[in-house]
Design a protein around this nucleic acid. Sequence first.
RNA 1: GCCCAGGUGCCAGAGUGGUCUAAUGGGACGGAUUGCAAAUCCGUUAUUCGUCGGUUCGAAUCCGACCCUGGGCUCCA
Length: 540
Amino acid sequence: MPLSLYNTLTRSLQPFTPADPAHITFYSCGPTVYDDAHIGNFRSFLIADLLRRFLESPLCTLTTSSGAPHTGPRTVTHVMNITDVGHMTDDAEGGENGQDRMAVAGQRLAEAKKSGKLPADVSIDPRDPYAIAAYYASRFQGDARTLGLKLALEAQSKPTLMPRATQHIDGMIAVIAALISRGHAYAVGPAGQQTVYFHVPSFAPYGALSNNTLDGLRAGEGGRVNAANQSEKKHPADFLLWKSDPSHIMKWPSPWGEGYPGWHIECTVMSAASLLAPGEFARRLASPDTSPALIDLHSGGEDNIFPHHECEIAQSACAFCTTPSHNTFARHWFHGRHLMVEGQKMAKSKGNFFTARDLFAKGIEPAALRLELIRTHYRSNANFTMQGLADCQRMVDRWRRWLDSATTSGPASPAALESQARFAAAMHDDLNIALALAELNGFTSSISNPTTGDAETFRGCESTLAILSLPRPAAQTTSIAAYAPGVTPSDEIESLLAQRRDARAAKDFKKSDEIRDALAARGLAIKDIAGGKVEVSRKS
RNA sequence: GCCCAGGUGCCAGAGUGGUCUAAUGGGACGGAUUGCAAAUCCGUUAUUCGUCGGUUCGAAUCCGACCCUGGGCUCCA
């Protein structure tokens, strides 16, 4: 059975049918770089990565537009933008509290620098928005690579796969100009200080993605509309394409005045510029054609459905297509639900806010974090818990042990091939990851003495999850101990462990237990492992 | 108020009309092992699927109403 995926646009499960099944174009809305990405951001990106990896897996079958199955080989060009334009934080109070997000990040960095919280090797000018953006972008890419985001690994040698908004301002201006010339956008205000809006009523299908109607979208119901801006729009739903504002921290010249682009236009430009064939961006902008859709797949978090993706559809369809419609931009819309933490909404004020780097610093293994973030079906709110992370670590360890035990060469057993088929069937069913994981667990538990062929078959499934291929943080070992990642060896610990070793040798178990308790009081758990060493880890 | 996605056992999370007294992982409990632990292995652990009503020979699964959670209604993955 070919891959069936939920399409937000049709609100139904449907076969994923790319224009060319051998080469899929996929755009994911990426992070803003005013701060470190948190684990909720990464869940969204990793879900997209899971889909991308499954599409490229030999186990994946797709449906072609003629209805025939397509089994591969297949490549996916996956692009993710990095938003480095300083958008505004908040204008709920009519704009008075709105601050430039990049300026806020700069203030935060300046404070961190002052209080010595920045690593010594970091020397950036907190007043330079480009430096701030570059700083956080590089940290994001590092975290993404650590978590096995294939796109981030590829982007090391092909940076155009992760385009920056600030590098596409010319394209944005060109698209805005084209939208104005076709009657889909208009500029207001005195010459040289104009604001440009997309005119939503000019695109009848607006609302198709989020299933909103213009009437249903009560202007300002979410409390985030700037009343002053509302009055100059032709329609309350019209949205910003260009804002002239010479006081903005990041600004560019444009036909409408010096200022900055709207939030939605960057994805329209970067998806088309990165995924259309070379030269097509300019050609289609000059003379739109009737091609059915620009790209195959578009993903993002559920909060992007409205307004961001709704607006992208309107802009892209109107800029590049002669008969703009709700499905002339992306063929399939893929949205992941949000991540909860310990049953609650993740929020800095609740103290349950984690970045990937926070967790790595605590000694959490990237493989365990990746599994915890992808193990729940993408259309359910996932609940991130420390217990869940521990569960995942154990699952990863068990898989590794099983693979390590596959030393006798031989072909894959029928049981292995059956497990593989069941794994693939689960993934074809709207990426039923939880069932797929259950099949993988059944795989290892049903075959107690795996052959190399069994192990290869298992790896064939697992390469879609891409958990076991992640680098394993090396334990720091001394003559007496192996320290788990996140634990810093010290002379004190070494000395206690030596005393314990001597006490045990003398069968003074009372003393050895006291030492174990003393280490526990310092938050350290120990266990005796093979080779006479002691493994020291953080107490969970 | 409107639009979307959900609500399953101690936890996480599959299952969308009979094979479900509910997969899988974890937890807990018991056993093996261990000086004791840890790890590992073996076994046990829910007549129950948000609530109420309905359809059906049969419902976790379909229908209706209601309750709750998360997202959106122009910052957000």
